[in-house]
Amino acid sequence: MNRPAAAAAAGHVAGHSSGHAPGHAGGGDVADHAPLLTAHRANLVGCRSCGRVWPSGHEICDRCGATLHPPDRKGLQAVWAWLAAGLICYVPANLMPMLKTETFAGIGASAEATILGGVIELIHYGNYGVAAIVFVASVIVPLIKFGAIAWLAVVAGRPATHEAAHTRLKVFEVIEFIGRWSMIDVFVVAILSALVQLGFVASIHPGPAAVCFALSVAFTMVSAQSFDPRLIWRGLPLRGRKDRTPG
């Protein structure tokens, strides 16, 4: 049933291509800057999960079962909402104690350490390497993540050069990759609390910040996952011509 239509489309394409190809055939990087047909421009919708292409208006990918969305800015609402949730949880995660340490039969000290407090303590003991890792992983990285997701959501769909689009995609991929690694803090707290239960000598208990931090990381991950990277490419120069397909 599809076959005749496909053949016709292929013929159509081949006809035009052969007519114009010679002028372009030599330049390899012509392709990189040439206008491209996207699924959206062709009035089709591509599946973000498996790549299969369906007619516009199709709602569920019949191959993998994922919900199909056209690349529009509506999806950004979810990004902002999850990002806000992540930010809200990040505040108590830093203000409340991450670890409660009791040492030397309670005579010595019963300390409550926040994330930053833990870093300072590590520096105090001379563990500069570990201090740097913890500081970068639990303070710098979350802040960069918030900033980067917000930036991507703001610039999504705005006009961009190819270089800018590639930069945005790179940023998105880094954020997507790095997001889950922030969970490392929660695991460290869990391991320390489970392990250091030495009665009178020392014991460590988790603080409420661990929960807030875990939630913050999870919300930020969902926020990054909600961002549709296809939006990055929608603002490319050709946009003014015929970017929005009718309907």
């Binding site: 239509a5 699924a39 089709l44 919708v45 995609l169």
Partner: peptide, 14 residues
């Protein structure tokens, strides 16, 4: 119908 085509999940290029 989109048959025989693939869309890049990152940038939607066909």
């Amino acid at each position: 119908t989109g048959a025989g085509l693939l869309a890049c999940p990152r940038c939607d290029a066909l």
